[in-house]
Simulated assay, not measured.
Amino acid sequence: MNPDDPRAQRTRARLRAAALDLSADGGGAQPSTAAIARRAGVNRATVYAHYKDADALLTDAMEEALAPVIRAASLCPLDSPAHRAPEPLVELFEHVNTNADLYGRMLGAHGSPGCAAALRTRLTDELTARFATGERPDGSEGIPVALHASFLAGALIGVIAQGTADRGAAWRPDEAADAVWRLIRPRPATPPAPGH
């Protein structure tokens, strides 16, 4: 099978859409290959012609769904003022809030470990590439680029997972962006008053 063939691309797109729909609709369990095939209107053999298993299909589908998160990480101006979260970070949390059920299932306790790992790897790679060119927040001198990128990617995934795990306690997107920005780019400490 030629992956560049338009029919193969359409089939893969249908399979990815079915996997995402089932992940968003499901009760916390990862959808089976058979369920994905039924939703996409194909037989299970077609799924296996394109993907090794349901986890590989879900990981591929999530990679596409995660594109806005990766885009926000690549566009976030790391030299923005410390007192206000940059707009791409706010947009990231607005996207996550809009798709909270999907992210909750993807990153939650019953989610696919491959999806969380794929997001962490993609974010780490994006941040490493940016940091390698010297584009880093102030105060990061002496911290190895790969360590810094891995730390921020893991922290961001953790915040997204926490914010989508309990919808009753979900943060507003602007509040989440502001809190994360304060952690990424701490505000200067106010010196203690004389005599304290």
Rank of each mutant, 00 (worst) to 15 (best):
Pro137Thr: 02
Leu57Trp: 07
Leu92Asn: 11
Gly142Ala: 14
Leu156Trp: 04
Arg38Met: 07
Arg105Trp: 09
Ser74Met: 07
Val159Leu: 14
Thr33Lys: 01
Thr33Pro: 01
Pro113Asp: 10
Gly158His: 11
Pro137Asp: 05
Ser32Cys: 03
Thr46Met: 08
Pro113Arg: 04
Asp125Val: 07
Ile143Ala: 12
Ala109Tyr: 04
Arg120Ile: 11
Glu141Leu: 10
Ile70Trp: 01
Ala18Thr: 08
Thr59Asp: 00
Leu156Lys: 00
His83Ile: 03
Glu63Met: 10
Asp125Trp: 00
Ala49Gly: 13
Gly41Gln: 12
Ala155Tyr: 13
Val90Pro: 02
Ile143Ser: 07
Val96His: 11
Ser80Gly: 13
Phe131Glu: 00
Tyr48Arg: 12
Leu58Phe: 04
Ser112Gly: 07
Gly142Tyr: 06
Ala146Met: 05
Met106Thr: 14
Ala85Arg: 00
Ser74Ala: 13
Ala65Trp: 00
Gly27Tyr: 01
Ala24Leu: 05
Thr46Leu: 05
Ala35Phe: 01
Ala34Met: 06
Ile70Leu: 15
Ile160Thr: 07
Ala117Thr: 11
Arg84Gln: 15
Ile157Val: 15
Thr98Asn: 10
Ala37Met: 09
Gln30Glu: 09
Ala19Gly: 11
Gly158Asn: 12
Leu78Ala: 05
Gly154Val: 09
Ile143Glu: 11
Met62Lys: 00
Thr133Arg: 15
Ser150Ile: 00
Asp125Ile: 00
Val69Glu: 03
Ala129Asn: 10
Ala45Met: 12
